[in-house]
Design a protein around this nucleic acid. Structure first.
Lengths: 143, 143
DNA sequence: CTACTAAATTGTAATGATTACAAATTATAA
DNA sequence: TTATAATTTGTAATCATTACAATTTAGTAG
């Protein structure tokens, strides 16, 4: 069940602990770009002893090892994502949903720009998603 | 002195107030992508009655009118920028400096993606700037 | 120029995400 | 099995931002 995540942790010389395994699994199974609170409250159900601080700590170290990435797209809270292949993100400023954007981009793989060392490249698209936009139109027509 | 900013406000049907003029001027003269605190404490010197809340409110409305934009690049605070021509941004995770990135990008002008309405496109590059990187190397050599 | 009104400004109090920190626990290696 | 450094935990800060009510003011109509 967890061998996959044990392997990832060991490959990165991280101690194998229950919170780390659970968090990795959660992110692997939920590609919803959850925030800390969502991860915490979901895992807390099965592991009542889990501490919110541990979730913060674990995410931090997983990020440092580049196993996951954090998105600053929302502006009010970090959202987390298992790191698998570069892609861009869209956030709906109405409902908060974030989803992956599959467009090619010539600047995605940059590791250098004008002598500066680039470690992360993030493309954010912000706007109103189809669903919210449709609802909005319907409301206007009926009102 | 402020005619330029008065004009901008009037063109967007915004009331012309001292805080708005000062904030616009500040952003026009400081392309450093400041956060709220920097703007506030700088303007507070000349206008002691200025309230931090007013800075938040004014930035909000200027953003809504698309006169300025907010950057979520840092992850802990919003950074502000006069909106003039699309460009990407680099942030040094070591010293916090943000600067403009002048690269062309085919996805910058998108207003639609898969039925979703795109209102902002932001390209963020995160890493270590040249200056910090050089300092780091020097420290390692001497230590 | 004056008076009116909606909008903007102000200050304080709350909120929410994140970090600091110290004590208890635990994964790993000897 | 033991030692120990790392991790986890809970609580208490901190920091950016928002809520809100009272005061002031910009713009407009008379």
């Amino acid at each position: 069940m967890y061998e996959k995540y044990v392997k990832i942790l060991k490959e990165h010389t991280l101690k194998v602990t229950s919170p780390r395994l659970e968090i990795l699994r959660y992110l692997d199974e939920h590609h919803t770009h959850p925030n800390v609170e969502e991860i915490y409250s979901s895992l807390k159900k099965k592991h009542p002893s889990l501490s919110r601080t541990t979730v913060y700590n674990s995410l931090e170290i997983l990020k440092k090892k580049r196993i996951i990435q954090s998105l600053t797209i929302s502006g009010s809270e970090l959202r987390y994502d298992i790191h698998e292949g570069l892609h861009h993100h869209f956030i709906c400023t109405h409902c908060g949903t974030i989803f992956d954007i599959a467009i090619t981009c010539p600047n995605m793989d940059r590791t250098l720009y004008g002598g500066h060392r680039v470690e992360e490249v993030q493309g954010y698209f912000k706007g109103i998603c189809k669903k919210c936009h449709t609802k909005e139109k319907r409301r206007n027509n009926n009102g």
